[in-house]
Design a protein around this nucleic acid. Sequence first.
DNA 1: AGCCAAGCGGACGGGGGCGTCCGTTAGCGT
DNA 2: ACGCTAACGGACGCCCCCGTCCGCTTGGCT
Lengths: 208, 208
Amino acid sequence: MRVVTDRLPHVLRSDAASNRARILEAARTLFSARGLDVPMREVARRAGVGPATLYRHFPTKQALVTEAFADQMRECRAIVDRGYADPDPWHGLCSVIEKICELHARDRGFTEAFMSTFPNAADVTADRAYTVKAVTELALRARESGHLRPDFLIPDDLILMLMANRGIHASTPSSRAAASRRFAGFVIQMIQASPQHSPLPPATSLNR
Amino acid sequence: MRVVTDRLPHVLRSDAASNRARILEAARTLFSARGLDVPMREVARRAGVGPATLYRHFPTKQALVTEAFADQMRECRAIVDRGYADPDPWHGLCSVIEKICELHARDRGFTEAFMSTFPNAADVTADRAYTVKAVTELALRARESGHLRPDFLIPDDLILMLMANRGIHASTPSSRAAASRRFAGFVIQMIQASPQHSPLPPATSLNR
DNA sequence: AGCCAAGCGGACGGGGGCGTCCGTTAGCGT
DNA sequence: ACGCTAACGGACGCCCCCGTCCGCTTGGCT
């Protein structure tokens, strides 16, 4: 007797599977290089499929983005997890900052997906919340350890620096990566505890 | 005998002048709040004129942008001039950084106009070059005075910080201004000379 | 008051992106 | 080998933006 689940084909036909893979590859390439506002048609064109096929596999652009950046999201979580697990919280925090900046510098689309509050992007939102929570706790421990300056607001100033990193552009991916790396170096020195710090301008919540 | 220049009407009719003024006001408002990719139609709509009128006064979007931000450009030059004239170069540099960040935070369109290399934007390019040159000399003096960290690259790192400031967004203009102010505070402390600085990652030119 | 050109804006054609429909193709199971 | 249906993609209608043309309005001068 056939069970109910047999009625929905959960396995793709071979051509469908390869099309899907090519679409994702095309999306990753284009989104990485040019950000999220690449036309869906162009993704389809690069993947060698018609627009209808693209829309059949990913009914909304958000779905495509979420799938395309699943790897990057995993890598992002892995970065914060490794930092979180570091016995030296300051060292862990520094490595998180460096790696996240590099990840964002390497992939413009991922930056947009991660930062911009996409409407109805439940997955991305959840991943971001997880990341922010983990890095918040890590930063709190770093502050307790005395290495992080006490007036550094957690997580607001971390988000501030991530936003700042997003503004860094350059004409080639490699020079962008280098600029972002240098910026991360500045940031790390900037947030280090030091006796000579004068008071900073106050922060208001970023949401209002 | 009438002279040749009489043949071109150099004075606008009163309605034309008021339309022109209203167009510029509308453009300033919309560009400030939403950046440069506001449709020309929308500027016309807000100014209460037809699209043809808008295009008659400003045949290209670049012309409109240049006119609309002439004030901001003047203010920008004034800021660097005041900093340049400061007898204490470090103090002058700090005030330039604070003021420029604030100016950019207040006006999203100006940021885009100033940063993005608009094709055929001779005016903006010249203004930017002037600004960069002045602030470069100011920073060099600040470095000689011993207040600016010696490994700070001039003007590359200044531009890096300006780009970073551009990445800072918020849901309201006032919170954006506050965030930018706080960022500028971080930057100033970060570029201060200090015995404890460890080496920074190298910079590659931003152009290649 | 009357003229007339400076000035106006509605409307047009072109281009591009979007999401969907439907006739055709071809993978896969028998 | 054959048929069935999952899967494909060309083509369509919709909307928005762009830049321009042309018949009408109106400010300003005589």
